[in-house]
Simulated scan of single mutants.
Amino acid sequence: MIGGSWGNEQKEGFFPFQTGSTTKVSFTFEQDKITVRLPSGSPFSFPIRFPISQITYVSVDELETKSITLN
């Protein structure tokens, strides 16, 4: 969201999560993109459309989280 308006949404063609299963998700933040890695598929990237010096908020709905590791 920039200036109160959402940009274009980017979606991938597969949904990697299944009810009741365990999945490890890894996010890598680079200068121009965020790369998401899942054990079940190839990594995919989302462009960073404006400069980000830090990420202060992440939201996930309806997901049971067992652990979070920040490096």
Rank of each mutant, 00 (worst) to 15 (best):
21 S>E: 10
31 Q>P: 01
67 S>R: 05
56 T>Q: 10
5 S>H: 15
67 S>C: 05
23 T>M: 14
67 S>M: 02
59 S>I: 10
49 R>E: 12
67 S>Y: 15
36 V>G: 04
10 Q>E: 15
38 L>F: 00
23 T>P: 02
26 S>C: 14
8 N>G: 03
47 P>R: 06
26 S>H: 05
48 I>Y: 06
61 D>M: 08
10 Q>F: 13
35 T>Y: 05
54 Q>E: 14
32 D>V: 12
3 G>P: 00
40 S>D: 03
13 G>E: 14
7 G>T: 11
35 T>V: 09
61 D>H: 05
40 S>C: 09
50 F>W: 00
7 G>Q: 15
1 M>P: 13
34 I>F: 07
40 S>A: 04
62 E>T: 11
16 P>D: 00
52 I>D: 02
1 M>C: 09
14 F>K: 10
28 T>Y: 03
55 I>V: 15
55 I>C: 10
56 T>S: 12
53 S>K: 11
11 K>M: 08
70 L>S: 02
7 G>E: 15
40 S>H: 01
19 T>W: 03
15 F>C: 07
20 G>S: 14
41 G>T: 12
51 P>K: 00
25 V>N: 04
58 V>S: 05
48 I>D: 04
69 T>R: 15
69 T>D: 13
6 W>E: 12
67 S>T: 03
8 N>W: 13
58 V>R: 06
26 S>I: 06
55 I>P: 01
62 E>L: 09
36 V>E: 11
57 Y>N: 09
71 N>Y: 10
25 V>G: 01
51 P>T: 04
6 W>A: 08
30 E>Y: 09
39 P>W: 01
54 Q>W: 03
31 Q>K: 13
23 T>R: 11
43 P>W: 00
39 P>L: 00
21 S>V: 02
46 F>E: 03
36 V>I: 13
50 F>D: 06
11 K>Y: 07
65 T>Y: 01
1 M>H: 12
11 K>C: 04
20 G>Y: 03
42 S>P: 06
61 D>Q: 08
